[in-house]
């Protein structure tokens, strides 16, 4: 058993070396496929991050009557926090609202003086509500419109922003779906190209496979060296692909960071270095081995 295995491995290594250009071409195509797969994956990471950033920009504010008790507002806040749809609720008291207003209009003396002359703080306390998903604002709005809150709530800005929120939700949904679909199609095309390259390489060896079988080799003994070649193609291609991806991220990452500060691809690759390397190698080896195994089936039927 060990002797047969060592012969299969040795034969696979020798074939890999002697096949020279064919091995190089196969590695190149698998590398391109792996780079495409990883790019599709990382593009999806970027797209998801961009969409999350966009979603976080959408929130709903509830304004309270000037005579609403703070305790009532805080009760509503804790009720809102108990809802499954709500990610975060921020309370802005009347005093804080005035402070924000003043700092926002620093330098506008006329406006600030007018506020001072009123004597009393004219601004309402509010709750800024961030949903876990921007499609959940309708449910949150329905919750706030209950009769029990009518005497404290003065205004909910959801109705005013509904059109913008709905439009943004549609854009996010279309982008997520089309991004996923484009990724799947691109990954499948990359797989087909690599698979057909390996199929052509095996096709060029079909006579050899027949001869091996006629000399008395078992299917395992014939298939083994080709699978070893597949492992080598995949492993080397994944190393090349990883080098290309890491260099690419090193180049694109900082540019993207200055454009969208929330997305740090360099950090992402840094913190997922080993898992990215592992999945690239796994993908490369699986692609090489599966393609060889599948492409050989019909030539072994002798």
């Amino acid at each position: 058993m060990f002797v047969k295995l060592s012969r299969i491995i040795k034969s696979g290594l020798i074939n890999f070396w002697r096949n020279g250009w064919l091995s190089a071409a196969t590695i190149l195509i698998i590398t391109i496929s792996l780079v495409t797969w990883t790019s599709v994956f990382l593009s999806n990471v970027v797209l998801t991050s961009v969409l999350n950033v966009l979603s976080e920009k959408v929130d709903v504010s509830v304004y309270f009557n000037l005579n609403a008790k703070e305790s009532d507002i805080l009760t509503l806040k804790s009720k809102l926090e108990g809802l499954g749809e709500v990610a975060n609720v921020e309370y802005i008291s009347r005093d804080q609202a005035l402070k924000i207003f003043k700092s926002r209009h620093t330098g506008d003396e006329v406006l600030l003086k007018s506020v001072d002359e009123l004597g009393d703080n004219p601004l309402e306390a509010s709750l800024n509500i961030l949903a876990k998903d921007s499609t959940q604002y309708t449910a949150i709005n329905s919750f706030l419109n209950q009769d029990q809150f009518k005497n404290v709530v003065s205004k909910i800005n959801y109705t005013e922003n509904k059109l913008v929120i709905d439009r943004l939700n549609n854009i996010i949904r279309v982008l997520r779906e089309s991004g996923f679909l484009a990724g799947v199609i691109l990954a499948f095309i990359a797989f087909l190209v690599a698979f057909n390259t390996v199929r052509l390489a095996i096709y060029s060896s079909r006579e050899e496979i027949t001869v091996m079988k006629l000399v008395g080799a078992s299917n395992r003994f014939v298939r083994g060296p080709f699978l070893i070649e597949g492992v080598l193609h995949g492993a080397i291609a994944s190393a090349f692909s990883f080098a290309v991806v890491v260099s690419g991220i090193g180049f694109i990452g900082p540019k993207l960071l200055s454009f969208i500060p929330e997305i740090n691809l360099v950090n992402y690759v840094g913190s997922n270095f080993w898992s990215l390397l592992f999945f690239q190698t796994l993908g490369g080896v699986a692609l090489g081995v599966f393609s060889s195994w599948f492409a050989m089936r019909k030539y072994l039927k002798i």
């Binding site: 002797v3 047969k4 012969r7 074939n15 002697r18 096949n19 006579e207 050899e208 027949t210 001869v211 091996m212 006629l214 000399v215 008395g216 080799a217 078992s218 003994f221």
Partner: peptide, 27 residues
């Protein structure tokens, strides 16, 4: 043992390896 008109040797193996292959498959 089979011998064919078109020889059917394994092109990427040397004469020694072609002959040895028949023994390797037989264990």
């Amino acid at each position: 043992g089979a011998v064919f008109q078109d020889f059917k040797l394994l092109p990427k193996k040397t004469a020694y390896e072609n002959v040895a292959f028949a023994m390797e498959v037989a264990g």
